[in-house]
Design a binder for these strands. Structure first.
Lengths: 223, 223
DNA sequence: CGCCTATTTGAGCGTCGTCAATCCAGGTGG
DNA sequence: CCACCTGGATTGACGACGCTCAAATAGGCG
């Protein structure tokens, strides 16, 4: 189900493929397949066997650990260029997270065998993949660090500071419930922490819009 | 400072190098360097520039995030065959953890350039490295999952169950303080949780020795 | 415009962290 | 080989931060 109209369709704009020749991209799209997900659609669920790895081309997704008893725990938000599922290399492995599209998404999927070939044939592919996975690892370590050393309000302040800004305006790109989960907080705690930052005059919030009034004080809170 | 007496000295016993030809191992040892660490010695500290990646050959090490205010947070214990520091590939990167030898240790170090060459020349090297990093990622996700969903006693029970056993005997391979930190607990909380498992008759503990009396009940506690 | 879900707000509680003192073990030296 | 000694482990008391449950409000999508 290779649905690309042109072999390297769209791939050149993705950071992950930057610097890889059109020839190699053409080969890659010829062996891999592309899939579309609707908003809310599940790509895989925790516990299922891992058959492919994926590279997100367009859209937003989340990796999360579901729970019957309580809220799911969001592990990461994915953006175009993010690769995930390298664990396809570990034989007989099963997913330890679920993956779900937050917006309509398009992604490229590679079987373990295709992945092996890609690593052999495409110069720089292995390097990019290792860099990608290394970065995810460091992100997780950062999450563990925050969870270990910072209070709820500190984590929220940290998150706000990390958001892309235009002037002193930023926004929450995801539901607050999901952001709270990523920060290891309950929605109520997230809401109250945000409120504290507002009442201290550091930011103001209207829906998903944030105005940052005192970046230095916000930074000072974090550490 | 290449201190190997034979080119591939000792490497063949390490899982990471299993299946890699002696020729390639010889090449690897010719470009890489080997270092020894004494017990307690620091390999690198958080914040320092990353110049090499490492593969632990013998000994035990820990990766941890230090903190002035409170106890350090142990991120992972390392055993022979574990590779770490792939982030050497990310330009201008600095360590986000510290690395410290828990026992006398020997390790192999590779510069970013050597790493790139190793990936190009040695079939399977990239695959092993990706697998290694992927596994570390999954371990971190497991830690986040435990921290999110399980109580202190559940985390301790889970840890006990994971330890290698001979009969119904297991042991703590590290200081309880360090294990507590890995589980995201204070030493006091770890001690009290352990005590609860003992007083419930599931295990008994003498120093670092554990006797498991009821594995099923222990497993039932975890989830 | 109306329903359905997300978010906010409130009240109360429990788990775990903090501080401090005591206990114990393992390593060291006499 | 034994006693000392130092750092790790345990125990106790207490408090706070964040979670849970419940209800009200706001917001977004059809």
């Amino acid at each position: 189900m290779n649905s690309f109209t042109e072999p390297e369709d769209g791939l050149t704009e993705i950071a992950f493929f930057d610097g890889i020749s059109r020839t190699h991209l053409a080969w890659l799209t010829s062996v891999s397949s592309s899939q579309h997900l609707r908003r809310g659609e599940i790509l895989f669920a925790k516990g299922e066997p891992v058959s492919h790895m994926y590279i997100l081309l367009t859209g937003q997704m989340k990796l999360a650990i579901p729970s019957e008893r309580t809220q799911e725990r969001v592990i990461d938000f994915l953006k175009p260029g993010d690769a995930f599922g390298e664990c396809v290399l570990l034989p007989g492995h099963r997913w330890i997270t679920s993956a779900c599209a937050l917006t309509p998404s398009r992604l490229l999927s590679l079987s373990a065998q295709d992945l092996g070939e890609a690593i052999d044939r495409i110069p720089g592919f292995a390097l990019r993949l290792i860099s990608n996975t290394s970065r995810r690892c460091e992100g997780l370590i950062g999450d563990v660090e925050s969870a270990s050393f910072r209070s709820a309000a500190q984590r929220v302040a940290e998150y706000v500071l990390r958001q892309p800004r235009t002037g002193n305006q930023a926004r929450f790109a995801f539901h607050k419930r999901a952001i709270a989960s990523k920060l290891g907080l309950q929605p109520e705690t997230f809401s109250r922490s945000l409120k504290k930052l507002v009442s201290d005059g550091l930011i103001s919030v209207q829906g998903s819009r944030i105005t940052i009034h005192d970046e230095d004080a916000l930074q000072a809170i974090v550490d």
